[in-house]
């Protein structure tokens, strides 16, 4: 119990998780450190196979770790399972329901296992399922099943919620509803750790983001900190006139488009446009944007299974160019 901070809902250090043994052994999580502060929404981002679900399952106490330490609300999720579960809510990546039970029967069944549960009507209302109360789960749409699943997750007023891809398969309307729900949870004092494929979702919802690649956290911080230090991009269709020297920027002339990665967007863009004006060059299809979570994420995803430091390379080139931080 040493070293447990009361402001941390989740504390993971040096986590490892392997599947199989011998020749077929595969290490999905390779020394992962993660902390989640109470009262925040933290998103775990990563490509398919980065190890997000493998990590979450260990934190949820569903699978044992091969190595490392996990504390959830200051407790061990496996040894203190009963006490931890009373205070947590889990949404798995894939919903698990008996197809032949109705929505109400499913919620009633859940309620029988939960400490101080919300009532079934309240749960139905909360996820807009009242009109589907007597429908069998097999007759629900994917989005409705996901909402039913969330109703189960939130039934016991959890103070810590794990959501594995909560909005995958939802239509835009349902997705926004889920976002509001997650924000309400945080505003009500709960802590949320979620995984997602949707960068927009992570950017919009999260107080902090951890990006995973090949079983490790490769970048961590607030959404603003994550993009900080990553190059902005200027793009246009190739022109015949040779480009000017743009200090600090990296120019990559592709088949049809030229991509400039610049540590500082404004001076580089000014230099480029001044040159274009003087040379009477038109830059067709000109686009300029600062780094987004998406561009950072893609650069990590494209850098292959990178070492612990994220590569700052542009996605289209092989040679790295140091960009000022």
């Amino acid at each position: 119990m040493t070293n447990t901070h009361h402001d941390l809902a989740v504390e993971v250090s040096g986590l490892r998780r392997s599947y199989g043994s011998g020749k077929d052994a595969f290490e999905a999580v390779r020394g992962l450190d993660l902390t989640v502060e109470r009262g925040t929404i933290t998103a775990l981002l990563g490509t398919n196979g980065a190890g997000k679900t493998s990590t979450l399952e260990v934190i949820e106490g569903l699978a044992p770790a091969t190595g490392g330490e996990v504390r959830v609300l200051g407790m061990d999720p496996v040894a203190d399972r009963r006490r931890v579960r009373r205070r947590t809510g889990v949404l798995l990546q894939r919903s698990g329901f008996a197809a032949d039970l109705t929505v109400t029967e499913t919620l009633r069944m859940w309620a029988s296992t939960v400490s101080s549960p919300r009532s079934v009507p309240e749960s139905l209302e909360m996820l807009d399922l009242t009109h589907r109360a007597d429908v069998k789960v097999s007759g629900l749409s994917g989005g409705e099943q996901r909402r039913l699943d969330l109703a189960c997750t939130l039934m016991g007023h959890p103070e810590l919620v794990f959501l594995d891809e909560p909005s995958t398969g939802l239509d835009p309307e349902s997705r926004r509803r889920v976002w509001r729900l997650v924000e309400d949870l945080r505003d009500g004092g709960a802590t949320v750790l979620l995984t997602t494929h949707y960068l927009e979702e992570a950017e919009r919802l999260s107080d902090r983001i951890s990006i995973m690649d090949a079983g490790r956290i490769v970048r961590e911080g607030t959404p603003a900190e994550i993009v900080e230090g990553h190059p902005s991009h200027i793009e246009f269709q190739n022109v015949t006139t040779p480009l000017p020297d743009l200090p600090g920027a990296r120019v990559d002339v592709g088949h049809t488009r030229t991509v400039i990665a610049a540590p500082e967007l404004q001076p580089t863009l000014t230099a480029l446009l001044t040159w274009a004006e003087a040379q009477r060059v038109t830059l067709p299809g000109l686009v300029a944007r600062t780094a987004t979570l998406e561009s950072v994420f893609l650069s990590i995803a494209d850098s292959g299974h990178a070492p612990s430091e994220p590569a700052v390379a542009d996605s289209d080139t092989d040679h790295d160019l140091e960009v000022a931080r």
Partner: peptide
């Protein structure tokens, strides 16, 4: 859809194993 209420501390009624 109503909003979620604040988490309550785990002092409430806990169902027995039989329940």
């Amino acid at each position: 859809m109503s909003t979620t209420t604040a988490p309550t501390p785990a002092t409430g009624r806990t169902p027995s194993a039989t329940t």
